[in-house]
């Protein structure tokens, strides 16, 4: 009987999709860059805002994970493998089939728009690579597919250079870490300065280049593993929140000791990932109903397991630039 382990099928799917389409889930590139169209960001510049597509992909990955959960513990039939190949060849079909909640897709666009505005308000002009805002390959690296990852890393680097980049501003912990700490050993002559927007923003706030306002009065903070233990971006989000007037509450396991949301194993063991998320949510709930997350993977995995009715918000949904003179947000 021709069948494959779900994990093998999944790894091949992620690899082939990333190599052919530039995204681990085959989608039309406009899904990734359409958020930026109304902002009229230039295509070329020495400072490039590079999202690595993670925020935009997460609603689709969430749908995909629902399918994977249904398959957990079973074998994958030939029909399904054929379907996977068709999906990679026809990204528009994938978009239709995965059909994520429109609100989730919209939310990702809103977050990125706000991040871009926060940067502009801080006086940090930036360009955006549009159809070249490719996925960084971080999932391939984390799952051990390092040959494919090396190819992807080289391609992303070349595209960023084509857009004139000398500095890249990243917006999530995984993309930041992979560019800052991993790309240099996979890409010959890697010469991009990688800064995270929280670093940019906290400095701007400290130097009073931007005035911030918060949309909640207090929240418990959930540090992502990659900011806390790989990048040591720990004080920056706290400064930003405090400058915005948001009271930051610390959960039991916080800062360098922060607890994983479970997200990284959601493709291999979805139920285990949910259980880890539930454990984390319980201790976050001890401090506040408002939870601030700093990573789209944390957001997705915690939201999926959120049976406690917590309000889970990305930091870029909680903080915005106060426009001088107006006193109220748009």
């Amino acid at each position: 009987m021709a069948s494959a382990s779900p994990l093998k099928a999944l790894l091949e799917f992620l690899r082939d999709s990333t190599l052919r389409v530039g995204l681990p889930v085959p989608l039309p590139m406009e899904e990734i860059y359409s958020w930026a169209l109304p902002l009229r960001l230039p295509r070329m510049g020495s400072v490039i805002l590079y999202t690595g597509a993670l925020y935009q992909l997460m609603p689709y990955i969430e749908s995909l994970t629902r399918y994977l959960s249904a398959l957990e513990g079973s074998r994958v039939s030939d029909t399904l493998l054929r379907l996977a190949r068709i999906l990679i060849a026809t990204p528009k079909l994938t978009r239709t089939l995965l059909a994520p909640e429109p609100a989730r897709v919209e939310r990702a666009r809103r977050i990125l728009t706000n991040i871009s505005r926060l940067l502009s308000s801080s006086g940090v002009a930036h360009a955006y690579p549009y159809e070249d805002d490719l996925y960084s390959g971080v999932l391939l690296y984390d799952l051990g597919l390092d040959d494919a990852f090396a190819e992807v890393a080289g391609r992303v680097y070349r595209k960023l250079k084509e857009h004139g980049a000398s500095t890249v501003i990243t917006v999530d912990p995984h993309t930041t870490n992979i560019l800052r700490n991993v790309y240099p050993s996979y890409v010959d002559g890697f010469d991009l300065e990688v800064v995270n927007y929280l670093e940019v923003l906290s400095r701007a706030a400290e130097e009073s280049r931007i005035r911030l306002r918060g949309l909640v009065s207090e929240a418990v903070i959930h540090d992502p593993c990659f900011y806390a233990r790989y990048l040591h971006i720990i004080d920056e989000p706290r400064k930003i929140l405090e400058r915005s007037g948001v009271k930051v509450l610390e959960p039991r396991r916080s800062r360098e000791a922060t607890y994983c949301c479970g997200g990284p194993v959601e493709s291999v063991a979805p139920r285990l990932a949910s259980k880890i998320a539930e454990t984390r949510l319980k201790e976050l709930a001890e401090k506040s109903k408002n939870v601030v997350v700093l990573c789209p993977i944390c957001y997705t995995n915690l939201s999926r397991a959120n049976k406690l009715g917590l309000r889970i918000l990305d930091i870029a949904e909680v903080v915005e630039a106060e426009v001088p003179g107006s006193g109220s947000p748009q």
Binding site: D142, G144, C225, R229, Y259, P264, V265, V268
Partner: peptide, 8 residues
């Protein structure tokens, strides 16, 4: 494959 890579 079940390691989260969380580095705790």
């Amino acid at each position: 494959m079940l390691c989260l890579g969380c580095r705790r």
